[in-house]
Structure formats: C-alpha cells, structure tokens
Amino acid sequence: MVRVAIFDYGAGNIFSLKNSLEKSGATVNVITNFDEPNNYSGLLLPGVGNFDPAINSIRNYSKTEFKDYVGDMPVLGICLGMEMFFEKSEEGKEKGLNVINGEVIVLPPSLKVPHMGWNDLEIKRPGKILEGVDDGSWVYFVHSYRVKPNSDSVITAVSDYGIKVPAVVEQDNFIGTQFHPEKSSSVGKIMIENFLDVCKK
C-alpha cells in the first residue's frame, strides 16, 4: 500500500481528495508542516485557497525547506497547488515555489471568470498522469488564473476555454493539473491511480 501526504493550507475542505486517494488504495496523512520525518511516497498540494496565504503556510510554518523535504518524491499539485509550482502569480505578491519556470496570470476579462465546470482535454504529449486517458476526456475545472510556463515542453495537455489553458504540466517529479481530478469522475480516478503508481516506483 502506498503512503502519501496532503499538505493542508488551512483554507478549506480536502475531504474529497483524501477520500479519492483512499478509494484508490492509498494510506493518506494530512500534514501542516515539513518538519516531521518524510516517510511518504508522494505529496499532494490541493487546489483550495489563495496564492499568498498558501505559499506562506508552506514557507512560514516549517524549518525545513519545501525542496529539501520533497527531494525527488513525486508531487501532484492540483489547481492552486499547480500554480504554486511557478515563480510568481498575479493573484499575490509572494514568490512561488519556483520548481517550474514561468508565471501565473489571470484569465482574460473577455471570458467568464471563474472558469467553472466540465471541459475536455487536448493531449499534447504522453505524460505519467495521462496514461490510459483518452484525448477529449472531460474533467472538472474551477479557476480564475492559468499558468504560463516559459517552455511549452512542460505542458502535456491543454483545454480550450476561448483560449488554450494549460491543463496538465509535468517536469521531473512535479505533476500539476489545473482541474480537480478528485471531482472528475472516472477520468480523474485514472489520474489519481496513475499518480499513486508513480509513487510506488
């Protein structure tokens, strides 16, 4: 059985994510700092909250640096969790985790914001979390910002919402989804199981 941690920013309900992971066979702990020994096979940064408070909860409540704690452990960032991988965000003033080069920008004012609901994926290249996911699969989004990586090579899937929104990014041990796999029915379940498979390796 694979053992993973969800980092809780203190911002809201992470029950559905924990429940999805447990249904897929994982043992799940919820953590609030990085000072306990890391005996996990994977870490999840959930998609609940705002950029600055979430970043501060990662930076200010642990003596251990995020990158030192994580090492080469697989990390899945969901929505806000993915946005924090980048250098900065228009949602806040704090620096991001800077594990992927690029920034987070607000969706254009010409679009209905937040983008909320089901949208289909356009798979650009194979990815660890996309194994067994069909091109055109539908997933559930709730977001007002989008990531803008310096290099398109990290984008494995996009979604069309009037503009092409990066929907899945992967770089090294960091995997991010702009949508919520835990709310994306059977397609999301495949992705969660794929992430747990990566954690087992």
Rank of each mutant, 00 (worst) to 15 (best):
P53N: 04
P53K: 00
P53F: 05
A54N: 01
N56M: 06
N56I: 03
S57E: 06
I58C: 08
I58Y: 10
R59Q: 00
N60A: 12
N60C: 14
Y61I: 12
Y61R: 00
Y61S: 02
Y61H: 04
S62N: 04
S62H: 06
S62M: 14
T64H: 14
T64N: 10
E65D: 01
F66W: 15
K67H: 13
Y69C: 15
V70P: 05
V70Q: 04
G71A: 13
G71V: 09
G71N: 12
D72F: 05
M73R: 02
M73A: 15
P74D: 06
P74W: 11
V75H: 01
L76H: 06
L76E: 06
C79M: 00
C79K: 03
C79H: 02
C79V: 09
C79Y: 00
G81E: 07
M84N: 08
M84C: 12
F85K: 01
F85Y: 02
E87G: 08
K88S: 15
S89M: 08
E90I: 12
E91M: 03
E91S: 05
G92W: 01
G92K: 11
G92C: 08
E94T: 12
L97I: 14
N98Q: 15
V99Q: 14
G102S: 09
E103D: 02
E103K: 02
V104T: 15
I105D: 05
I105G: 09
V106A: 15
L107N: 12
L107S: 13
P108D: 15
P109H: 11
S110G: 14
S110F: 13
L111R: 09
L111Y: 10
L111G: 05
K112T: 07
H115F: 07
M116V: 14
W118F: 14
N119T: 11
D120R: 09
D120P: 10
E122N: 09
E122W: 05
I123Y: 00
K124G: 01
K124I: 13
L130I: 11
L130M: 14
E131S: 15
V133S: 10
V133W: 10
V133Q: 06
D134L: 12
D134I: 11
D135W: 08
D135N: 15
G136K: 04
S137V: 13
W138N: 14
Y140N: 15
Y140D: 08
Y140C: 14
F141E: 01
V142D: 07
H143P: 01
H143M: 05
S144V: 09
S144A: 13
Y145D: 03
Y145T: 11
R146F: 01
R146I: 07
V147H: 03
V147P: 06
K148R: 05
K148L: 07
P149T: 11
P149Y: 02
P149D: 01
N150D: 03
S151C: 03
D152E: 04
S153Y: 10
V154H: 03
T156G: 00
A157T: 09
A157V: 10
V158F: 06
V158Q: 00
